[in-house]
Simulated scan of single mutants.
Amino acid sequence: MGVLRPVALGPVHWAMIALALLTGGIHLYVAATTGEPAYAVLGIVLLAGLGVFFTRWFAPPLYLVGAVYVSLLLVAWVIAGQQLLALAIVDKLVQVALIVVFAYLLVIESGSASENGP
C-alpha cells in the first residue's frame, strides 16, 4: 500500500491548497529577504502540512491542527515585530482565510465521516 491516498479535490480544497502555498511562500520569501531562518522553518512546516493532506496519514482532525498552527503564525508575526507591513497584512488576510477554510473542511468532512460509520 502506497503512502499517497486518492483525493477528490473540490473548490474548497483548491482554495486550501492555494492559501497554504501562498502563506508558505510568503514565509519563505521573508526568510530569504531578512535572513531570519525562523520564517523558513515556519514556511516549510506549512508546506509539509499541505503534503500530509495527500497521504494516508491524513484525517479531518488535522484541519484543526492546521488552524491552530496558522493562528500561532498570526501571533508570531506580531511578537517578532516584522517590518514588512504591506506583506504582513496580505499574509495575515491569507491566514485568516485559511483558518476559515480549515474550519469549514473540518465540519464538512468530519460530518461525512460520521455519517458513513466507523
Rank of each mutant, 00 (worst) to 15 (best):
A31Q: 08
V100C: 12
F54K: 04
V107C: 04
L85T: 14
W14Y: 08
A76H: 08
V68G: 03
A88P: 00
V52R: 02
L47V: 01
H13T: 01
I17L: 10
K92L: 04
I89L: 13
I89K: 01
V96F: 14
T34A: 09
A18D: 03
W14S: 00
I26S: 01
V65N: 05
V12G: 00
P11C: 00
Q95W: 00
I44Q: 02
G66A: 09
I108F: 06
T23D: 11
G49A: 07
Q95N: 13
I44H: 01
V75S: 07
A113N: 03
T55M: 10
F54Y: 10
P11G: 15
W14K: 06
M16E: 09
T55D: 02
V52D: 05
L98K: 06
T55P: 08
L50A: 04
S114R: 15
N116D: 12
S71Q: 03
A113V: 14
L74Q: 14
W14M: 05
P6E: 13
A103I: 10
G35Y: 12
L73R: 13
M1R: 12
S112A: 10
T33C: 01
E36T: 14
A32W: 12
A86Y: 11
L105C: 06
P61K: 10
G51V: 06
E36Y: 14
I108C: 01
V100T: 12
G35P: 04
G66V: 06
G49V: 01
L42P: 00
A88T: 09
Y39H: 15
V65C: 08
S110D: 00
E36H: 15
H13I: 06
I44V: 15
W57I: 04
A8M: 03
P11K: 05
L84Q: 14
